[in-house]
Design a protein around this nucleic acid. Structure first.
Lengths: 340, 340
DNA sequence: TTGTAAGCGTTATCAA
DNA sequence: TTGATAACGCTTACAA
């Protein structure tokens, strides 16, 4: 049982040759005689030899591991994203180390520490919504660990990232409603300081001005994305002095709460008040109340792109990596309209 | 930029002492003079020294990494389970390497290979529903890598596992319906060879016999869990010669399809035909049609338990690990009844 | 209290 | 075509 794994040394001893010969034979080094090579390979096979990656990682100062830090895997967006990451990583012989921040800045910091300890070759991060200080990211940069952000990105100069352009998604969402004749459209936005919220706000404003409508700031309300806050925001819009006939919500979860709340107020969902949202949850069309449309953010694609970017970065020689500036990829969001 | 990480050698040189002294100072070894210790620690701090874990892993023949292989992170069950795993792992200084099999046996095998290469200390596996041969698991066992299965476990002797007793869950589910007066209850089960299906079947039979009702095999139909297959199974039950008034479904996803199908046949959900299911998806109560109850399988808890078991196994000396037999933990499932 | 040195498994450089 | 040896960074038994 559990006989300890054979090493090249073991093979060398048995064959009465040197370990370097064994190493080379195993690597198909051209200078090794066919005879020796076969002998080595056969014995390796027989002993079920497997190179000790730990030793190789150590020797090559590389772990072939990338760390992925994201808020919640339970959010469909992230589980899709990590699949994209995993696929790209796997194709490139990299492996994925996982850490969920649970939207807790402290936890995020701690995970980064652990990953640094584990000497991941690089990191993919979607920051927690409570992360405000960015020192830990700076620190990583300084220690030469490449970093690619995706989806939720910090407001820092010179970072590599992949993100979705929420502005255009929001323009589409709002325009969709405007074209349907709505004139008083509310927006339940996320926390004000979030970049994602700023983009939605901007998109909303652009759509309004495109349609030559005056922008009414009181139609945008912020929620901290808890159920209570979502309810409150919804009530605020539903009791607005102007009659709100359509609401754009920060994401599908917010939409669920908003529609629930509206329905309790005897409002006919998507009749009296129309809803449009973001995320495009897999189950969204099966919901009791579902929005008329939802902005797809292509999480799998974002994951792929981010992983590709990171691996590209990792492939470079250290000196090339010094290149100033940063990579950015913007994935276009897209309004998915559901059949009614 | 990216100055390469300092080593104890570096510290030793600067302080003109030996590397072993540095190593010991950093580890608070009792035999080191307070003076030297402070000097070492201060310099380490200043240089932002961090031990090279890759070297340590190599040296200690341990990576403090556990591999987790599961079908889909997009299933709420698994994303909850992995959170439990991650929490326990983190508390014990372990880190989590992720692999999704996508219910593909080949992929599963390949992930195992990669993880073995990466020298994970142990593995947590929920097998893919298409895994039929277990050689790769046997192989791991032989190479001395501890293995703990959770949720979906293979039919192998002497394995460690954590699983949910679906029998009792099914007894509860079926009894719930029986108590409501239903007499002709259908079961849309999963693939026949799945252990989980066998348990559900058994539970169904037990509940029936407890209520002194004759078991009618034609009321159990199998689905391969695709949408089409779910539809087909549903139709079969709805056109059964006996009038089926309640249906238990393999899980919430099946329930969604089944209720959709039933509704298209003008059947009044939970009036004409009542539905009960498994999994307790977080969104289940927000669905257009939701089952009257769903069996909770405590994924987070299963994840925790499995991780604890594995870490316990890892903590042992090699000789203790030889202990024959195996650990099993059965987590009780529980019927969650939703307010109507 | 501190230093020396072996060893973990591999790759790579240099010699033979 | 092959072998000896250093090196990667760290821990630890043994010496001093």
């Amino acid at each position: 049982m559990s006989a300890k794994q054979p090493t090249i040394k073991e093979i060398a001893k048995r064959l009465n040759i040197s370990i370097s010969t064994v190493s080379r034979a195993l690597h198909d080094h051209p200078s090794i005689g066919l005879r020796t090579k076969t002998r080595v390979k056969e014995l390796a096979e027989e002993l079920m030899y497997e190179p000790n990656q730990a030793a190789i990682f150590f020797q090559q100062r590389k772990t072939f591991t990338i760390g992925v830090i994201l808020p919640f895997l339970s959010e469909a967006f992230f589980s899709a994203a990590i699949s994209g990451i995993e696929d790209v990583a796997g194709k490139n012989q990299y492996t994925v180390l996982l850490g969920q921040s649970r939207d807790d800045a402290e936890r995020e910091k701690q995970i980064i520490d652990t990953m640094k300890k584990h000497r991941v070759d690089g990191l993919l991060i979607s920051i927690s919504k409570h992360t405000t200080s960015y020192e830990h990211f700076e620190m990583l940069k300084k220690s030469g660990i490449p970093l690619v952000f995706f989806d939720c990105i910090p407001n820092m100069p010179d970072i590599h990232y992949v993100a979705c352009n929420m502005v255009s998604g929001t323009v589409q969402a709002t325009s969709f409603l405007l074209k349907k004749g709505h004139r008083v459209i509310g927006l339940i936005n996320g926390p004000e300081k979030l970049y994602a919220s700023k983009q939605r706000k901007e998109g909303y404003q652009i759509a309004m001005s495109k349609h030559r409508l005056k922008y009414d700031p009181s139609l945008i309300v912020n929620s901290d994305l808890t159920k209570e806050s979502n309810y409150k925001a919804t009530k605020e819009l539903l009791t607005h002095k102007r009659k709100v006939t359509a609401i754009v919500t920060f994401n599908d979860y917010v939409a669920i709460d908003a529609m629930q709340q509206a329905s309790e107020q005897k409002i006919n969902i998507n009749k009296d008040v129309c809803f449009v949202s973001y995320a495009n949850l897999p189950l969204v069309q099966h919901l009791k109340f579902s929005p008329m449309a939802s902005v797809e953010q292509h999480p799998y694609l974002q994951g792929q792109k981010a992983a590709e970017m990171l691996i590209e970065l990792l492939g470079r020689k250290d000196d090339e990596r010094e290149t100033p500036g940063s990579y950015k990829i913007i994935v276009d969001s897209q309004l998915m309209i559901f059949p009614q």
